[in-house]
Amino acid sequence: MLRTATLAVTFLAGIIVILAFFFDVGFLATAEARVQDWGVIVAAFALAMASINLVQVNIRRISSSDDATEKICAVVLLAALVVMSIIGLTQGPTSDTYNVLFDGIMAPGQSTVWALGVFYISSAAYRAFRVKNVDAGLLLFSSAFVMLGAVPIGEVIWSGIPAVSQWIVDVPNMAGMRGMLIGAGIGAFSGGLRLLLGIDRTEVG
């Protein structure tokens, strides 16, 4: 019964937006608008869910871990979550205190974590980027030109570098990406179809 209801809801939500895309019928347009607006609201609830999951995992970390650092980290994480939420819910996400936490912790935190990638790239470049075969050779060739084409020093080394780099991106890269894009599109279509019709092995939820 519950499984049937789930399958029916999944199917209906999908088929309505598909039909409304192809057919200009009044009631379909209304149904599409309703379903989409509801989707935004349910997604907003789901956003909060992810954070609750995090709370759960970290409460477990506090109660079951033997490592003191683990416990301290979990407490800090939960405290940060609670403080941020309370300030945001009472004073709003554009208040001064909220902005201090956003600009002081959230924004620099994420951008530094992303930026750290440059270090792993450098050591992988040194240790692992070997021209072992044709594949690796082509990869190195194209990456070297694209890297040098992205910065002024490339042109200083050889004036042709920007043009070659642009050509690699616009022609062979474009063609290859297009092939992958079409293939991935077919794959995503197939996944969507299986999901709508409930023939996927992976369970919803």
């Binding site: 954070s51 800090v76 994480l77 939960l78 956003f102 974590v113």
Partner: peptide, 11 residues
């Protein structure tokens, strides 16, 4: 920063 980001999502 993970805690603050999660709080932001809730807000």
């Amino acid at each position: 920063y993970v805690g603050v980001s999660a709080g932001h999502a809730i807000v």
